[in-house]
Computed example of a mutant assay.
Amino acid sequence: MSCTLFIADLHLCTEEPAITAGFLAFLRREAFHADALYILGDLFEAWIGDDDPQPLHAEIALALNALKQRGIPSYFIHGNRDFLLGKRFAAACGMTLLPQETVLELYGKRILIMHGDTLCTDDAGYQQFRRRVHQRWLQTLFLALPLSLRQRIAARMRSGSKQANSSKDVAIMDVNSAAVSESMSRHQVQYLIHGHTHRPAVHQLEVNGQPAERMVLGAWHTEGSMIRVSPDETALIAFPF
């Protein structure tokens, strides 16, 4: 059956080998038979530069490149954890980098895809932080630092992020409904697929007076999560590693 797959929020790291094994199995079982694979951010728990020599990175690049060898394209939208993933690693994966908001025409459906963090506009502190770290000059400066120093900075930032999130109202870390409507209206779509919030669900809504659908991918904590789009349906699917 012809289909396209979407995943997000795997947060791959050496400390969670079961998730890595689950992803590699997913590539063999599901992605190898798809028309294309879209990864909507936070593939990795952290990314401090394409020059980081972690064996995990090479393992994932090899597995994703196998898709390309089978003629199956893969695409990547940056997340809030791996926004520094660059062209060098993407090339090693045989993966195409996409803008943070991308519209696809799939099987007669017009679909907006994104990571999803830009929709969480009620979290003013995070949005301010995001604008700061996405400044090109700051990213260039960070990537020029020695790898060991980047590792220490990243560890401190992750710790600070966990502390900040623990004190936030859970509601402000979800998407803002007006931001959702604005994005879908601006791109003239009736379908939106994103991750980031770790709240897998299919939401029915109305955009420009027409029925619309927002599909949210789940994080890969104890099971996998994917959205399968085919000529017949769009489905949010959870599956064991």
Rank of each mutant, 00 (worst) to 15 (best):
L192T: 00
Y107G: 11
I7E: 04
T14E: 15
I237K: 05
D52E: 13
E45A: 13
R152H: 13
H78I: 01
L40S: 10
S159E: 13
L149P: 00
P146Y: 13
A219Y: 10
V229M: 06
P231T: 02
H33Y: 13
A154E: 11
R158T: 05
W137D: 13
P146N: 09
R214W: 07
R186I: 01
V180M: 10
P99D: 12
V216R: 08
I172N: 05
L106D: 01
T102G: 08
Q188V: 06
G22Y: 09
W220M: 04
N176K: 02
K162S: 05
L10F: 11
D169S: 11
F239Y: 12
T140M: 06
D82M: 07
D122W: 08
K109M: 04
C93S: 03
R110E: 04
T121E: 03
A219P: 08
V103E: 01
S230V: 08
G49N: 08
G224L: 08
P17K: 12
R29K: 14
L145M: 15
Q54A: 15
E101F: 14
E105A: 15
P231L: 02
R130P: 03
A18C: 01
A91C: 07
L143N: 12
S74Y: 03
Y38C: 10
M114K: 07
V229G: 05
A66V: 00
G116E: 10
P99A: 14
L104M: 10
M95D: 02
L67W: 09
Y38Q: 11
M95I: 06
H11C: 12
E45Y: 12
N65G: 15
A91I: 08
C13T: 09
K109I: 03
S177F: 05
Q188P: 03
Q54P: 00
T4G: 01
E16I: 10
R132N: 14
